[in-house]
Design a protein around this nucleic acid. Structure first.
Lengths: 100, 100
DNA sequence: AAAAGTACTTTGCGATACAAAGTTAATATA
DNA sequence: TATATTAACTTTGTATCGCAAAGTACTTTT
């Protein structure tokens, strides 16, 4: 791939993962149920995309019990935040390049 | 998919097509060879992604001869430009939403 | 005891991305 | 005139992806 597009992170070439990161970057803690509802995902789809973000260290999982119910919350990591903002920055640059 | 991400055009969820549209939106005429070199694509990959953009009416093909050599140039269509700018606009909105 | 909730994992399939090789048609070269 | 080259594809094959649906494990509610 050319340097023209080198800054775009491949992991963000997915609406689902883009959506997840968007949620996580604004809200420090988001749980499974919230993400599922907001992004309208099936359990499996949510789990697998989140696993991908986890695997590369962009997201951290926190498992706890709320009352008697299991609860899984996700949080963005420092690297995840950096990578996502970098990605958005290169998109912004692209937009500006186009507008000028 | 949630309304949160509904504005993102699926056809632009590809670095190659994103790159092509970026080139075409700033430069009215881009030919096969230029795109190939700038985006570092194989002939086949270029042709198939461009065919996808053509098929949905975002790009127009112009075939001509330059001297005695065949030359294929691509140009963005009105709809293509509109759709791409819309896509970028929703990304901008996302960025702003996040920054606020 | 049965049903439901939470968070997955597995399965299976259709779509996608890509390189590599093959194709077509013209031109240039030996 | 045979062969190689160039340009622009198309075809083929493979690996990966995205997703729904079904299955699993564990717990709680009925």
């Amino acid at each position: 791939m050319s340097s023209y597009l080198a800054d775009f992170n491949k992991v963000f070439e997915s609406r689902v993962r883009l959506g997840m990161m968007s949620l996580l970057v604004v809200q420090e803690q988001v749980d499974f149920g919230q993400i599922k509802e907001i992004l309208q995902l099936s359990d499996g789809n949510l789990a697998s995309h989140m696993a991908a973000l986890e695997k590369i260290g962009f997201v951290e999982v926190r498992k706890q019990f709320i009352g008697k119910k299991p609860n899984t919350t996700y949080a963005i990591t420092v690297q995840g935040r950096a990578a996502f903002l970098e990605h958005l920055t290169s998109l912004e640059k692209l937009i500006k390049k186009i507008q000028s």
